[in-house]
Design a protein around this nucleic acid. Structure first.
Lengths: 236, 236
DNA sequence: CACGGCGGTGAAAGCCGTTAACTGCGAACG
DNA sequence: CGTTCGCAGTTAACGGCTTTCACCGCCGTG
């Protein structure tokens, strides 16, 4: 049972992360200071210490919130595709990820740039949100393979050093029963996907491309053929 | 003709960027403050304004210096391979890039993370260094294609939006005469290369892999086959 | 030799995070 | 109902940060 106090507190926490994020979007990451947040809320900076142990802890909380929003966006894209259509779901989630990143570059930079080190007494709430985010893509990938298996390299043809890591990831983290080649393929795809999105968002393709969309679609075509997915161009 | 004053000034500039970088490596990017640099040099912070217009300008100068060092590292790797061996050169440069990034994660983050916006009266010295860095890889790629052409998609089968951008990049920036498919292939490879290195350096593969080396080599194998290169595993 | 400009200083303004002491006010308990 | 306790918030202050300003000594040039 939540007391009135608890509800108020929770609301304040939400207001804090909300204003922090508004400042992030409007004025960039270096403008997200305790004083600025407090100012915008009609408070003073030390009051924020009633809610977060430090500036970094607050930031990590914001990171967590953004992660869950991103996850929600992916799920939204997922559900907009009819349930049998695995190819459609895969393409939709991938495109939604890129689209979200381009629409929220500063949030993306916060989530996927050089990480904010150190953790508070939340231990790892942000980490938990990040894991959940990763899981939405991974679970889709695994479902895709189960429903419509694509060819996968047998264990004997995987680099032994890599094999061992894949195995421990499967056992210790996933706890599912799958060929390790599937996990290898997942990582390959994920690296290409997030890699290309990161480069684009951070502006590292602008030296040649004003609009990297076609390059992204080209990659999606290649990935689709690797996964035995029927590629369809985006709608709009 | 450089006067004595000019030589002294240049030496001081170098000392500044040197100590800035030492602090960056030892204590992280947020520790690279004007005061810290000045302290380490036995000066006071305002003195640095004789050399750089602002903290950001100094940082961008450091970025430029690091870019040229990275470029030098790539050239070093290049020349260690006998001159005819294009496959060897391509593999060597790619691996050296990853190796340098892993050996200098903080510098890498400064160069390839979310960019430091705003420019000083240098206009774009750092940009110039970045271009030169990009050019070392691009020129190698083009030489590779000229000496041993790999199959390339004809213009008609390139996305028209992409085609236009590739064309203007070729005309306005490169000024060379090549099929646009070559440039498309270059961008595809570069995105995979830098994308995977960025993810690894920023720790975004640690959720599954402790050592991403084998994944990188797997990618190099795939790229090699796309470029008709004879893959050879790394030496050590 | 005089002097002007360059490299340096200290002080100060205005940010920042963080801590500490203090103050009401609402809720809980006797 | 009255007391008390804890929580949200304040002000003041410390130290560090960038940046500007006024000042000063010295070196090289004319």
């Amino acid at each position: 049972m939540k007391s009135r106090r608890d509800r108020l507190r929770e609301a304040t926490v939400q207001e804090i992360t909300g204003t922090a994020r508004r400042i992030l979007v409007a004025e960039g990451p270096e403008a997200v200071t305790l004083r600025a947040i407090a100012r915008e809320m009609g408070m003073t900076a030390p009051a924020l210490y009633r809610y977060f142990g430090s500036h970094g802890e607050l930031l990590r909380h914001v990171v967590g919130a953004i992660f869950t929003e991103l996850t929600a966006a992916l799920h939204d894209a997922l559900q907009a595709v009819p349930n049998g259509d695995m190819s459609g779901k895969f393409l939709a989630v991938s495109r939604r990820f890129r689209h979200w990143a381009l629409a929220h570059p500063r949030e993306y930079a916060l989530l996927f740039g050089a990480p904010v080190r150190g953790r508070g007494h939340d231990e790892d709430w942000a980490e938990e949100c990040a894991r959940e985010f990763g899981w939405t893509f991974l679970s889709l990938f695994l479902e895709l393979w189960r429903k419509k298996p694509f060819p996968v390299v047998p264990d004997e043809r995987i680099d032994p050093v890599l094999l061992e890591q894949l195995r421990s990831y499967r056992e210790d983290v996933l706890g599912v029963d799958l060929p390790l080649g599937v996990i290898q393929q997942f990582l390959k795809c994920w690296v290409r996907l997030q890699g290309s999105v990161s480069l684009e968002v951070f502006g590292h393709l602008e030296f040649a491309l004003r609009d990297a969309g076609p390059m992204f679609e080209l990659m999606m075509r290649e990935i689709s053929s690797e996964l035995d997915i029927t590629y369809r161009p985006p709608e709009p």
